[in-house]
Amino acid sequence: MDTFASYHPAALLGYFMAVLLPAMFSANPALHLLVLLGGLAFWALLVPGRTFAGDLAFYTLLSLMIAVTNPLFSHNGVTPLFFLNGNPVTLEAVWYGVDMAVMLVAVLYWCKCFHRVMSDDKLLFLLAGTASSLSLLISSAIRFVPELKERIARVHQAQKAMGLYSSGSYVDRLLGGLRVFSAVLSWSLECAVETGQAMKGRGYGLKGRSHYALFRLRPRDGWFAAVTLCMAAAVVTVMARGALTHDFYPKMTGLSAAPEALLGYAAYGVLAALPFLLEAAGRCRWHLLLRRCARQDTGGEPGKDGVRWTY
């Protein structure tokens, strides 16, 4: 049940660009915090609770490490806290490290979401419209990977059965591995050429052929794209006017609370929360429908066998 992932791939790709670019390349802590919260909330809906907790522990450690190491390498800033080996550790560098850590972890979380939402068929669908040869090359490579892994295992077993490289020494294993690799390569190259000839025989590359479209634009994709576009345009306009600039060095400027900056934060907050909101709304609707179905089937009571129907 993925509501957000069911939008059109082009709209989704546009959305991810709109939310990631300002976060990755601005130095505004408020934007970084907003994007982190949005990503965390969405990721919490996508994975089971235990996975989420494990991830959170790992990324908290990672961000602590980044935040601590920054002041050791960077001695910019005018407020020294203490001196280490004769180098000042400054307040500004500490805050900069914290901000960087938040941004990095946020982007990593969004990359995980991207990986989950934009499966390879969606990316290849987008590429096929503009670059058909490249997308065919990538999709056949993706198909060959499991096939080659299986071939590697088969050749490996055959060589083992013949009594080759039976000793466990590293040199033996390495040489054996390379021999398997070489055998699989010649096998697969020959097959590849045959596949190519079969494709040619069936008219690959002739004029006037179209490709099959897996996804179709629907009205809700239009709404989604329009909201994304409006919010992104608002953020970019505010950024271009300089209302969201924030400097850490030499001395930190306070976060701007001008109306224009607040507008930028609000727009970006909506943008970052969009996947969470859509996904949560979709789940609520699904559960309501389930409940209504169950009520219609059994008159609101559990069935005779005591089991409530679930779909």
């Binding site: 090359l137 990977v145 690799f181 590849a192 690959y204």
Partner: peptide, 14 residues
């Protein structure tokens, strides 16, 4: 050509 595509795909995959 189709043959070039599939050969390159095998090299990428391996």
């Amino acid at each position: 050509a189709a043959g070039e595509l599939t050969v390159l795909a095998v090299l990428v995959a391996i």
